[in-house]
Design a protein around this nucleic acid. Structure first.
Length: 633
RNA sequence: GCUGAAGUAGCUCAGCGGUAGAGCAGCGGUUUCGUAAACCGCAGGUCGUGGGUUCAAAUCCCACCUUCAGCUCCA
């Protein structure tokens, strides 16, 4: 009898060919109820897969990423089923689960409208209520081809023709689809869903192929989860940095400069605070700041290799019979600073930081608010070090990145990308470097993911992701080792102890990535209510009537003297009106002053979003707000 | 770049062949007020740009510009 090992290491014996789901039932009814699929010896399988031999078994629920994937994949089948019954002429492309839902690509003559989506959604409920089982069937290739040829579905025929492996169909009611699976046991498991929209997508992602309509949706086993998800999408819309940027007067876009923001005075305050902060951090870590030319001859890019691989993304212009380009990255030019004089092993590491503007000609369709711009300001740096210094440099960088991001209350995660197949450079150096990166992560107690073979051809890297207040992931910082592009192509050397020239290792790194994108991210993360140290206006002083304008002005004066960004609101308006306005501008503190405050030398403090905090002596308020600013709380 | 949608006052939007509209913001006045919108008045627009159809175009047609959603996540 097969022995089944469960995640808690307990072992149970079962009759041969017992479906996995029976084992779940034996454990508990709720487990059987919540399970979506079974992981048998590490392979995600249908819940009713018969257990025929000894195995390790784990049940997957919606809590597991793999469980969600099965759930969404099954949802996409249910959607296709609904589409087929409403539009029998529809042909189907692919319909996978994605990070936050699912889609199906369909080929149909009419353009689907929101009303159609609603009809499809209703049909899905109707079909779901029948609770038909998802049935798996292994099928011979020629039978599979015959089936879809008869169904006149050229996309499925194309997919099957290219398959060598075992071909399986899944049927659920009167809908049959080519599918590797696995699926939830029956359509009734799929309860709460919402179709979110449609878009065009080329068959196989190739613009030479026909464009299909992609229908996106999301589904959940509990009503509350769907509601929360939809609420989150709404919230994201409200927090859209393009809207907040305009309303809070941070930045603006104009047709005259596509893909480039105009930084408004208030946005520039945030920019400068971030810049000041990162410079202070880098000073502590013994970086040297440099600034290199923005307009350079193409020879530089020929030498670095960018001319061959990156030319389409560069702004190129002819000047005096020479071809120039606006720099799309800083790295090649930093080597000129390195090569300014002969370097000794004693000089290393050299840490060159550069906050400069870069120009990248992103294709027009890729532009989007601050997230994707053509003119970016990067907090870039290139560290030149000896191979034996890699570990300590990476340690410092990990520390820096964690320190910076914890300040913004972001959750940080790290991913190590290893040697790709097209790697260049000394294999031994690769090995040592990957080991150093892994060791640095481990020394810092970091659990990290590994992306096999995902490094650049010139070195392994660590990508840093952050999770914002809405649970969305952003790829921001990066730490990239480089043995080839800068050191080899620009023939960088240092004189080692033995008097011989050696190659340094270069480390490309950025913490914020680009200021534009980072400001966009934090605008949405904080929903425009920036922490006090970043707030363009830190306190607004509101006299109750113009009888107290003088006292209010003296309060503003006192704040400004202590470096607090304060504004006087002496407009002839009721205090309720002024409060409403400063609330919507998300200013952290409002100080309301009238007769009482003037007589007692106090201010009535109102905190954004929290309300009235009562009166405080002015010096006390100044002390607490300046403390908050200095500590960046 | 490709597919689709959109562009009217600073902002949000109505108007969709017949003299350009509202609310908010702005400006002037009245009011002097205690924790999220006082009242009255005024001003504000080459209807994205260029061309065409028409007696007449914000409105219909064509081209371009810009923005938005998507185009990577592969039975």
């Amino acid at each position: 009898m097969p022995k089944v090992t469960l995640p808690d290491k307990s072992v149970i014996e079962v009759e041969p060919s017992t479906p996995a789901v029976e084992i779940a039932r034996k454990i508990s009814r709720s487990l059987a109820e919540e399970s979506l699929a079974a992981k048998i010896n590490g392979k995600v399988s249908d819940l009713n897969t018969p257990i025929t031999a000894d195995c390790e078994l784990r049940f997957l629920t919606f809590e597991d990423p793999e469980g969600r994937e099965v759930y969404w994949h099954s949802s996409s089948h249910l959607m296709a089923h609904a589409i087929q019954s409403l539009f029998p002429e529809a042909k189907f492309g692919v319909g996978p689960a994605i990070d936050d839902g699912f889609y199906y690509d369909i080929d149909i003559d009419k353009t689907l409208t929101p009303a159609d989506l609603e009809a499809i959604e209703n049909k899905m409920h109707e079909i779901g209520e029948r609770n038909d089982a998802f049935q798996r069937k292994v099928i011979r290739k020629d039978d599979a081809l015959k089936f879809f040829k008869e169904k006149k579905d050229p996309y499925k025929v194309e997919i099957i023709s290219a398959l060598d492996e075992t071909i399986t169909f899944y049927s659920e009611g009167d809908f049959t689809d080519l599918c590797r699976g696995p699926h939830v046991p029956s359509a009734g498991k799929l309860k709460y869903f919402k179709l979110l929209g449609t878009s065009g997508a080329y068959w196989r992602g190739d613009s030479k192929n026909k464009m299909l309509q992609r229908v996106y949706g999301v589904s959940f086993p509990k009503k509350k989860m769907l509601e929360d998800h939809l609420k989150m999408l709404e919230e994201a819309k409200l927090r859209d940095h393009r809207k907040l940027g305009r309303e809070l007067e941070l930045f603006a876009f104009h047709d005259i400069a596509p893909g480039a923001p105009f930084w408004l005075p208030k946005g520039m305050i945030i920019f400068r605070e971030l810049e000041k902060f990162i410079r202070e951090e880098l000073d502590k870590l013994n970086y040297d700041e440099i600034s290199t030319p923005m307009l350079v001859k193409k020879d530089l890019w020929e030498q670095s290799g960018h001319w061959g691989h990156y030319k389409e993304n560069m702004f190129i212009l002819d000047v005096d019979e020479e071809t120039y380009s606006l720099k799309p990255m800083n790295c090649p030019e930093s080597t000129y600073v390195y090569r300014h004089k002969v370097r000794s092993y004693r000089d290393l590491p050299l840490r060159y930081s550069e906050i400069g503007r870069l120009h990248r000609n992103e294709i027009s369709g890729a532009l989007g608010g601050m997230f994707r711009v053509r003119q970016i300001t990067m907090d870039d740096a290139h560290i030149y070090c000896r191979p034996d210094q890699i570990l300590s440099e990476i340690n410092d960088l990990i520390g820096l990145i964690r320190r910076v991001y914890s300040l913004f209350h972001f959750e940080v995660s790290f991913k190590l990308s290893t040697k790709p197949d097209n790697a260049m450079g000394d294999p031994k150096l690769w090995e040592e470097a990957e080991a150093a990166l892994a060791k640095a992560l481990e020394q810092n107690g970091i659990k990290y993911g590994v992306k096999e073979k995902d490094g650049a051809f010139y070195g392994p890297k660590i990508d840093i992701q952050i999770k914002d207040a809405l649970g969305r992931d952003w790829q921001v910082a990066t730490i990239q080792l480089d043995f080839v592009m800068l050191p080899e192509r620009f023939d960088l050397t240092y004189i080692d102890v033995d008097g011989r020239p050696k190659r340094p290792v270069a480390i490309h790194r950025a913490v914020f990535g680009s200021f534009e994108r980072f400001v966009g991210i934090i605008t949405e993360h904080f929903a425009g209510a920036f922490p006090t140290w970043l707030s363009p206006v830190q306190t607004a002083v509101l006299p109750i009537t113009d009888n107290f304008n003088d006292y209010a002005a003296s309060v503003v004066d006192a704040l400004k003297k202590r470096g607090v960004r304060a504004e006087l609101d002496d407009r002839n308006e009721k205090v309720g009106y002024k409060i409403r306005e400063w609330e919507t501008k998300k200013v952290p503190y409002m100080l309301i002053v009238g007769q009482k405050e003037k007589d007692s030398g106090t201010v009535s403090v109102r905190r954004h979003h929290e309300g009235d905090k009562g009166a405080q002596k002015l010096p006390d308020f100044i002390a607490s707000v300046t403390k908050e600013i200095v500590e960046k709380n």
